[in-house]
């Protein structure tokens, strides 16, 4: 295992992709590798891209890769697709849009299935970003679908968040009000040749004007960029290049105004949370599940023989006493 970490630090793509797989699969003791990697990260600019399915995010990412490569930046991409809730399988369809970069050694694209697990995905994405960071990817794009809590958690790993909208997808603006407004640094209206693009543009602008972030937040004026249809390749490339410029501008703004620290602090706190969960909660749950105790406790609860609060304290007492840093006082049976 240690060998894997050394290989990653030496820039071995194959080792890096294996390490990401281990993070994704939740292989035990991967943290022993990550602890060495973490200390060497923090150099990349992480960009989050989200939006509804069919909004054209992968095609946009593909062209952004091209734009960054023109400036000789190395690029990493983490593309998350949903798993089938029925079979657990997944078609990871983002990669196909980025195939033209496959032979470019300075582009590393990784597809990931959501696997429907709580917390785990966001942790795996966050750690994979570190792997790409340590490999030397100057820009890392995290692409995810939708606006649920899980996606917001993932996108919180980013310094710059882009929300992609397309005309004619109905409840877009509702979704804006519901939460994307909180996270977007840049709005993109994709497929701007479609009917309703102008109307959507105005709607987004008015939502931005009403938003608290615009008035009092970090002072960054959230821009709304129109991106032309991919079927007009020259126009498309030009408008995505402009988006690339805007992304860089945002990064510079964060740095110049000492805002990047706040962003990184949130992300870092989340990472600590995730690490705590993984090293405290996960082993406990694993043990309870392995013995079948968890299910038995659920049975007890169903029959109202006991309540979940007492059970939780009982289990906390059991483990915290064994823990080297716990004194057990928080779990007394008062």
């Amino acid at each position: 295992m240690a060998n894997l970490g050394e290989r990653v630090l030496a820039g071995d793509i194959r080792a890096a992709s294996r390490l990401i797989r281990n993070l994704e699969d939740g292989i035990p003791d991967t943290d022993l590798i990550m602890k060495d990697i973490f200390l060497k990260t923090g150099k990349s600019h992480v960009i989050g891209i989200t939006g509804a399915p069919g909004a054209g995010k992968s095609t946009l990412t593909d062209e952004l890769i091209a734009a960054f490569r023109k400036k000789d930046r190395s690029v990493g991409v983490m593309a998350v697709d949903p798993s089938s809730p029925f079979t657990g399988g997944a078609i990871l369809g983002d990669r196909i849009r980025m195939m033209r970069h496959a032979e470019d050694k300075k582009v590393f694209v990784r597809s990931m299935a959501s696997r429907g697990n709580m917390g785990g995905l966001s942790k795996a994405v966050g750690e994979s970003i570190h792997v790409m960071d340590v490999l030397g990817q100057e820009v890392i794009i995290v692409e995810t679908c939708g606006v649920g809590q899980q996606e917001v958690d993932i996108i919180n790993h980013a310094h710059t968040v882009i929300v992609v909208l397309v005309p004619g997808m109905g409840d877009e603006v509702q979704a804006l009000k519901a939460g994307l407004m909180e996270i977007a640094d840049i709005f993109v209206i994709n497929k701007a040749d479609r009917d309703g693009a102008g109307k959507l543009y105005k709607e987004v602008l008015s939502v931005i004007e009403m938003s608290s972030r615009n008035c009092g937040g970090d002072g960054w004026t959230i821009p709304v960029l129109m991106v032309e249809s991919v079927l007009e390749p020259h126009k498309f490339a030009a408008s995505v290049a402009a988006l690339g410029e805007k992304i860089e501008e945002h990064h510079q703004y964060l740095v110049a105004n000492n805002l990047i620290e706040a962003r990184i602090r949130n992300k870092t706190a989340a990472e600590l949370n995730e690490a705590l969960w993984a090293s405290i909660m996960q082993p406990v749950l694993n043990e309870l599940n392995a013995e079948g105790e968890f299910e038995m406790m659920v049975d007890q609860l169903m029959k109202r023989h006991i309540d979940p609060y007492t059970l939780a304290r009982e289990i906390a007492g059991r483990y915290m006493k064994r823990s080297p840093c716990g004194d057990g006082s928080s779990a007394d049976q008062s």
């Binding site: 078609i91 369809g93 196909i96 849009r97 033209r100 390749p233």
Partner: peptide
């Protein structure tokens, strides 16, 4: 002049 079309792989 017209750009290149790549397989969008719709399936």
């Amino acid at each position: 002049v017209y750009g290149e079309y790549r397989d969008p792989g719709i399936y």
